[in-house]
Simulated assay, not measured.
Amino acid sequence: AARAELGEAWDIPAGVIPSQAGRDTDGILGAAAEGRLGALVVAGMDPADLADPRLAETALDAVPFLVSLELRMSAVSRRADVVFPVAPVVEKAGSFLDWEGRLRTFEKVLDTGAMTDGRVLDAIAAQLDVRLGAGDVPSVRRELGALPRTRVGRPSAPSVEPATVPQPGPGQAVLATWHQLVDLGSLTDGDEHLAGTARPPVVRLGKGTAEALGVADGDPVTVGTDRGAVTLPAAITEMPDGVVWLPTNSPGSTVRRSLGATSGHVVQVTAAPVAADAAARPGPLLNTGGVSQ
């Protein structure tokens, strides 16, 4: 019913707006990795931010034709057949969706004539004989604002059974992880001084878990899965036993790439052997912008 309303408002024949659901990001990447897509258009994506960075890179390598919309050299643009250097935020109008789900529009601050994402997408669509009409943000806003109020009621939220609580066995723990404010994210590229202010990556675990492993603060602890492992100094923290925490994307702790896991997964936790040179040092290991001393 909602598709019929939109088709009527835009004077589109019935059946032009697809009735089947489109692929989500994981579905797109999976199809590309399996050779089922002929081309990809990728805008501002860092594979490290996705659930499976290795799958994303496999998809980028496998797709026959890759178009990148970017501000800087990236893992995508290095692989791309065509790169469009699009305008940064200050040189275009657009909108953000804030953490409350509210739409926040912004206007162009500088006018350098740089291509916007919408202009690039318009040009690509034109080559496919499609009039997209996304190149002029004010026009898009006016068109969306002119749509009549829908007569279709919103569907109720689906009934979802609660997930089963993970039950780690001996030598295992439930993984908790999130991004640090300063980490290996793309926005810190080229700023070594800012990167040097990042918190030292550690494995956080509760006192009971640490005692079971026989480790103290600063001792190396290895967190692993069938894919790989991460070894970092332990930081005993007030937290539940049977849980271990790692920074998601920090130096020495690229959790999604190295472990193929994320929050809620059960991982192996072991005390790692202390290197002979580290044991001989008189003081603790300090992270000072990539230099250990």
Rank of each mutant, 00 (worst) to 15 (best):
V174L: 00
M73I: 07
A176K: 11
E5V: 04
P47K: 02
V274R: 15
M115W: 13
V255A: 12
D26P: 10
V160L: 14
V76D: 06
L60A: 01
A62Q: 11
A198T: 10
P251Q: 01
A33W: 02
A4V: 02
P64M: 00
V182T: 11
H265E: 01
A134R: 04
P64K: 01
R281A: 08
E100Q: 14
D11S: 14
P53E: 14
L259D: 02
G153I: 01
A261C: 00
T58S: 03
V267T: 08
K108Q: 15
G171F: 08
D24K: 11
G118V: 04
A87Q: 03
E91R: 06
D189P: 06
P85D: 04
R79P: 08
A210R: 08
V86I: 15
M73L: 08
N249M: 09
T105N: 04
L205S: 09
R131E: 12
G44E: 12
L187V: 14
A39L: 03
T262G: 15
E91D: 13
S250F: 05
G260R: 10
Q268N: 15
Q127A: 09
P247R: 07
T231L: 14
V269H: 07
R149G: 09
L246E: 05
G185S: 14
L66Q: 08
R142Y: 00
L144P: 01
G135T: 09
D24V: 11
L132H: 08
R36G: 01
D217N: 12
S139A: 15
A173F: 10
A216S: 15
L147S: 02
A56F: 02
L6F: 11
R131G: 01
D111F: 03
D122Y: 06
T116R: 06
T225V: 02
T164M: 00
Q20P: 06
L181C: 13
R142I: 02
